[in-house]
Amino acid sequence: MNDFFAALSADNLSYLLQGLGITVGVSVFSIIISLIIGSFVGIAMFEKIPYFSSLIGTLNNIVRNLPLLLIIFFTYFSLPQVGIRLPVFWSTVVAMSFFEAAMLSEIIRGGLESIDKGQFEGARSTGMSNKQTMIYVILPQAYKKMIPPLISQLISLVKDTSLASGIVLADLTYRGQVVYAQNSHYIVPILIFMTFAYFVVNYLLSLLAKYFDRRLA
């Protein structure tokens, strides 16, 4: 019991919570960027623009079938070779944003395809352009259907930030390893704390998904 309280001392808790802040920060930036990129990619694949949609779809499939850890390593270690040097925080954000955008784009494309064709025809019959139809009629309906799977994917994103400890991102996972490396008796208490912290963040996201699901039903 003494080891438990020693592992979770005020200094260690402060250190771990700072790591949790980095985890949340990476997640927030990655979520915003991946939603933007994923929306454009999903719409491009849905529109079936000659050649362009096929090219985007092929690139998207390549990214989706690569391990996220490989993409993180590539971003952090390979980009400097071509003169692009990013801090570890932003390297992680870039890697996770592109990977998650590839995942989210499939959800978005599927959401768009679930909208009845009559919605497109009805909007265009009122004189709306294709762009106006997509922005004002189709996307609002599609996003209502996509919110639960989108948030489920974003929960996975939060958990996947732990992979960035491989490039020494000082997130919760990395800092937890630093703390219990000081004393082997700290391993269980620190793992319990990390489990609780990840659970709380992801559980709050799941509650958010249920809230929007009820509101938009």
Rank of each mutant, 00 (worst) to 15 (best):
A197Y: 03
F52Q: 08
L172I: 02
V41R: 05
Y186T: 06
I49S: 10
I72A: 10
G38D: 10
I33G: 06
L68T: 07
F74H: 06
V168C: 12
F193V: 04
V137A: 13
S97M: 03
F120V: 00
V158M: 15
S30K: 12
L69H: 10
G127P: 04
E100A: 12
I32D: 03
I108P: 00
L169I: 12
G83Y: 00
L70Y: 08
S105K: 10
I135W: 06
T133P: 02
L157Y: 07
G111S: 14
L69F: 11
V63W: 01
S53D: 02
M128Q: 10
A7T: 02
D171S: 14
S152C: 05
A102R: 03
K117V: 09
S30Y: 01
M103P: 03
S34K: 12
K144Q: 09
N202H: 10
I167K: 09
E106Y: 01
L16I: 04
L68C: 01
F46K: 14
A44H: 02
N2K: 11
Y143N: 00
S125W: 02
I151R: 06
M103I: 09
N61D: 15
Y180P: 06
L66D: 02
V200E: 08
D160M: 10
I72V: 11
Y76W: 04
D3I: 12
L112Y: 01
L154P: 08
V41N: 05
L35V: 03
V88R: 08
I37G: 06
I151C: 08
Q153M: 15
M128P: 02
N65V: 01
Y143I: 14
V88N: 13
L150I: 15
K144C: 08
S14N: 14
K131D: 04
Q141D: 03
E121K: 09
L66S: 03
R124I: 02
L68G: 08
F199W: 15
A10E: 13
I107E: 04
F74Q: 08
G83S: 06
Y180M: 15
M146T: 03
F98K: 02
D213I: 00
L79V: 00
I84N: 02
E47R: 14
N202G: 05
